[in-house]
Nucleic acid binder design. Structure first.
Lengths: 113, 113
DNA sequence: AATATTAGTTACTTAGAGGTTACTACTATT
DNA sequence: AATAGTAGTAACCTCTAAGTAACTAATATT
């Protein structure tokens, strides 16, 4: 999802423009306050392809929401974690998760099939 | 955005499957606790086409998150408002808006161009 | 008889997000 | 000399969410 035209400076529109993609909120929530390797993220989100995960991580890094650390080891090790800016999204993610745990959300999910 | 495969029952994934579309959170936030006509919604979100707005409203209605009321008048009058279920999303929308109003979000928005 | 008003619908097109598959680099281990 | 392990990349494809433009129904008003 790309930038949404936001003439009235709507804050919801602004947030959705930035983290409204299919995977970004899920990645941010997976990271939480942990530092995770690429492969671990891929394993936590089995439905995302490594190409898309790689792209999303690059975009999140460009937005300064996550930080990528490369270790000089073999086999390669790369860890991702939220920056302070990224962590500012955690209360929001908590609210998203809270609603997702509600009876209504669980019921609606089954209806989506 | 359609259903996301959610093998680990992740609540964030669940929420994003349901309201993760480009426009749904914006529509829900626009409605708030008000009852709004189709044309008014279109005016509040000038970047959405009437075809897409119409589709999104139908989907939200099918999810029982909004209620559509048709008045027998001419010219036609139709009003949309959140159901109780839809209103359960307002605290979440409030958190989304709060983050969207942060300095960081405003800064990142300009960067998206 | 033309225009306005409202809430859409229809038919068509298109951008691009997302998906698939195969591949690479580098070394240690069997 | 083949395999494993990690973090990706490259080339290609596909689908569908979204966009565009024109149109409709029904009546009142000019």
């Amino acid at each position: 999802m790309r930038f949404i035209d936001n003439p009235y400076q709507c804050p919801v529109t602004r947030t959705m423009s930035i983290i409204g993609g299919k995977w970004k909120p899920i990645i941010i929530n997976c990271l939480g306050d942990k530092s995770l390797r690429f492969g671990k993220l891929n394993q936590l989100m089995p439905a995302i392809s490594n190409k898309v995960l790689s792209n999303e991580l690059k975009e999140l890094e460009a937005l300064t929401l996550i930080e990528r650390t490369e270790f000089q080891e073999l086999p390669p090790r790369v860890e991702y974690k939220l920056t302070m800016a990224g962590q500012s999204l955690l209360p929001l993610m908590h609210e998203v998760a809270k609603w997702g745990n509600s009876h209504l959300a669980k019921q609606l999910e089954t209806q989506l099939h």
